[in-house]
Design a binder for these strands. Structure first.
Lengths: 224, 224
DNA sequence: ATAATTGATATTTGATCAAAAGTCAAAACT
DNA sequence: AGTTTTGACTTTTGATCAAATATCAATTAT
């Protein structure tokens, strides 16, 4: 049985209202709960969460620092609405950085890791089949981040988390394009390639996953 | 004479106390003004900048979100002190991401870009020769970020800025190892390779710049 | 009728303050 | 002497409030 070494304990940071608000807002964003265009005030969030405006302020400051939220009209804030250039930039950076994380993750593919991915893929397929949008988005997140976490680089993981905070609000539109099915093919390909230790193929599938989502997104959203 | 198009105007965001405090603290960190181990309270910063604690709070929240500052003892904050693992992680991620930015920057190397780099290199060499630590650190920043800016990816630029906020507090120790001279050789090599459109060589020099600094840093700082 | 200006309103920003939490050191106990 | 406990003090956290600022609508002028 595994003995826990003293270094492996989690730092157990104090639970404060602002971190709780921050967590809630993060989840909301990652699950597509904040639609682009929608706007809120600090007071409205404070009211919804039944806390005073102060902890909301600090949480929102943090999210604005991470560019997950932005000032919409000086009077209220919302998810940044991306133009085509920003979308493309985000896509290009994601392709490079998430490929890197995948490559690092594949330096050591334990059976436990494979099994974990398989389990998460099954959940994601089930969510797609039953058309659960929220369930799919969450499962998709879990699948990808299981990989990125396995890269064993806290800093890279952090950077990717940041990118996902920016793209997540837009992922729910993919449900209307029937894109989730296409996406799951790529997820299947990634897992298969991981099993075969084929980094090239896994990377190609991941890039296809990201790029095809981007193409659909741009086709759906951009009018000008 | 160039006519300014309406789209090219900067959004001109409102200047508020907290953003000013944030800017000041960023500069301080990037120029090595905050030594690892040193610690402050919000009140002490507020006092030093002659503002009330409130704007400092928000600026500090932002910097903690970006992991440029961290809580040291629940009672005061400081620059995160990195162990060997964190240093290595940071180095590895920097190597990958800054190489990527360099590659993108070299997709179009205008004469103006080259001239700009040359000018910045000259300043950096002068700073090294006259042993101006602060001057060198600033010039080094300007040289690197001239490249990263030319990559023309706001998102990548933002990620790199974040990484530099984390590593900058440690760069001043390189002055004592006479490392700046070695570093400038690499900068010279990078510029030469950029001029020749030799991406491979430029990347190799950049990686050498980052890696050798890391080696020196680890040798100097890590005792355990 | 259209455009600009002005004024009212909503919201953020910054200040002050009370309460909660954490730290450090002195004192008490083993 | 070393360890634990206790208590004073420091600092953060969250609340409330005033001032600054931006937005929107109504009014005025062209």
């Amino acid at each position: 049985m595994g003995m826990k070494s003293i270094e492996s304990i989690t730092p157990l940071k104090r639970k404060t209202l602002q971190t709780e608000v921050y967590r809630q807002l993060c989840s909301l964003i990652l699950e597509g709960g904040l639609a682009p265009g929608e706007s809120f005030t600090i007071a409205s969030i404070a009211n919804a969460l039944q806390v005073s405006p102060m902890p909301v302020r600090e949480a929102v400051t943090r999210l604005m620092a991470e560019k997950a939220l932005t000032i919409v009209s000086g009077r209220s804030m919302g998810v940044p609405d991306l133009n085509k250039t920003s979308f493309e930039d985000l896509k290009n950076v994601r392709v490079e950085i998430e490929s890197l994380a995948l490559k690092w993750a594949m330096r050591n593919t334990s059976p436990k890791f494979i099994a974990d991915l398989e389990e998460k893929l099954i959940i994601m397929i089930a969510a797609e089949k039953s058309s659960e949008v929220k369930g799919f988005i969450r499962a998709n997140y879990n699948f990808h981040f299981a990989i990125y976490n396995h890269a064993n680089s806290p800093i890279l993981y952090n950077l990717i988390s940041n990118l996902w905070l920016r793209i997540s609000p837009y992922l729910h539109v993919l449900s209307e394009s029937g894109h989730y099915k296409i996406s799951n093919e790529q997820h299947h390909n990634i897992l298969a390639a991981v099993k075969m230790h084929d980094v090239e193929k896994a990377t190609a599938s991941l890039i296809e996953d990201i790029t095809s989502a981007y193409d659909t997104l741009v086709a759906t959203l951009i009018t000008d």
